[in-house]
Design a binder for these strands. Sequence first.
DNA 1: TTGTAGGCGTTATCAG
DNA 2: CTGATAACGCCTACAA
Lengths: 327, 327
Amino acid sequence: MTVTLADVAKRVGVSASTVSRALSSPDKVNPQTRQEIMAAVEAMGYVPNQVAKSLNSGRRDALGIVVPDIANPFFPPIIKAVQARAARLGHSVLISDSDEQTRDELGLVRELVKRSDGVIVVSPRSDPGALADLAAREVIVFINREIEGAVNVLIDDGVGVGQAVEHLHALGHRRVCYLAGPARSWSNKVRRAAAREAAERVGVELVEYGPFNPQMQAGVRAADLVVASGATGVIAYDDLIASGLMLRLAQRGVSVPGDISVIGVDNSALSGMSYPTLTSVSVPCYDAGVTAVNIMNEHLSGKRVEPQTIQLETELVVRGSTGDCPR
Amino acid sequence: MTVTLADVAKRVGVSASTVSRALSSPDKVNPQTRQEIMAAVEAMGYVPNQVAKSLNSGRRDALGIVVPDIANPFFPPIIKAVQARAARLGHSVLISDSDEQTRDELGLVRELVKRSDGVIVVSPRSDPGALADLAAREVIVFINREIEGAVNVLIDDGVGVGQAVEHLHALGHRRVCYLAGPARSWSNKVRRAAAREAAERVGVELVEYGPFNPQMQAGVRAADLVVASGATGVIAYDDLIASGLMLRLAQRGVSVPGDISVIGVDNSALSGMSYPTLTSVSVPCYDAGVTAVNIMNEHLSGKRVEPQTIQLETELVVRGSTGDCPR
DNA sequence: TTGTAGGCGTTATCAG
DNA sequence: CTGATAACGCCTACAA
């Protein structure tokens, strides 16, 4: 059914290797024959079989990326960065969604490893030991989590979250909520620790609630806790939770930022879309994606890549959801 | 470097074929040898080479899906549905993002075709002729666009939007706004046309504003136009716009549904969370994904699949944001 | 410049 | 039950 190199060769009256050459290194073949071959290729609709090519080259010319939830606006920017950079290096990108814990994340990574030259795993949820084992065998780069002995691109949320606390303090807020993310989340650990440290440092009382899943619904639920707490400022684990929070506050007639100031983390598309626009900690997703691909590319170019951890810094972006403390 | 079937065979002292059998049909091999083989496989860390397997089976056990923009919240539900259904059928899913027009959508589809058994293309932007050609050669299912001679799964927003107009009419509204989505959007065309047709039919004056981007902020902006227009009912292009609209109306002291009734489209998570809860047109994303996979699976099971267009109907879900016309 | 031969890792077929 | 052998489609020496 499918047209092969041999079919084209037969049609033109040359050998398969000549056709192969005509396609991969056209200058190594007689212009005359090349013409004929090209014509036949066109006419017969020949398409090289990627699988066969991979089998003896060992290269797949694709790289994979696994994220916990494509519906979470944090990930698409990373994916897009990866795609852009990978395209420039001649790789396709295969995306896979582990659907948070529901699916077998490790299984997905293995699956992708078979089909690509290397895999980028973003915010992995799995057991660190298992991830380390896998990383030792395969070409893997982690984003947003530090796995021992592997290559990690880390987004240091701490800096931005610290700035968020300082920002609220400067506006006069003295009682601030931190809405925690998933208990097992590495990002949450970093963010919470930074919030605590900064609160301590500048002299702000920090009230913590959670854990919450990174979903709007969780923010809705959190809103009532926040109001009851008497806090005038909130730092949410991420923009989704912050958005849900703001939605519910609006419902209850609580003004943002009039009564309560709200800060998210991720600086995702949501932050510009919500109302009021959301002050948020900007996370360098784009850089993270590009950096990961660059490292992977070195690896694939045959260079030895040492285990390493690259830190990318975050920064607070002030928008409409934060203002003076009302009292 | 990598462990092959032959390596395992040599270690155990059997032939490669026996190892292969031990792995794929264990009951066709002596329990004793099987044990030894399994042990060796474990010890040597043998992993079957997917590429080699594909080469002579012709199957890739994966299916692809191409979307114009993973960051657009419309697509993730479809992707997740596809993944869930595909997993149940033993297929992995490879996702690809065409980044709207920026990248070569057709190229991506071709790329994915090589690596999978079939590809689902959602809301394709490319030239219909080229898509039709491709679909004639490869196993492809389109979602949300009709390509001649191909298999299409269509989400007919028109029905739901028509119901929305009828619903408002039944409540006594005679002057209704349609807040249009992006100018180039196919969905917007369908929705607007349906609104016009239904308005004409039942006798409602339709006022159109837009285009608006599917963002809350756009809804906020639209609110003032709506109030000025004197309309008592609004149908927004999607839930995001509808939510922003309601937020701003609340701010201006306009009661929903007391003064103005509001209807969204998508029936997204937002619609249950906003206040009041949002009457919305339910779009069967999940069904669309599942249906597409099912058809593809028939195709891959060897059944002949005729070109066809499957219409999935939308339906109005009435909640708290619509009520009697105030005058 | 072109053709031949061998191999990439696996599976299916056919003997033994 | 097990072992050769021949594909699968392509690429890359090596030879002509």
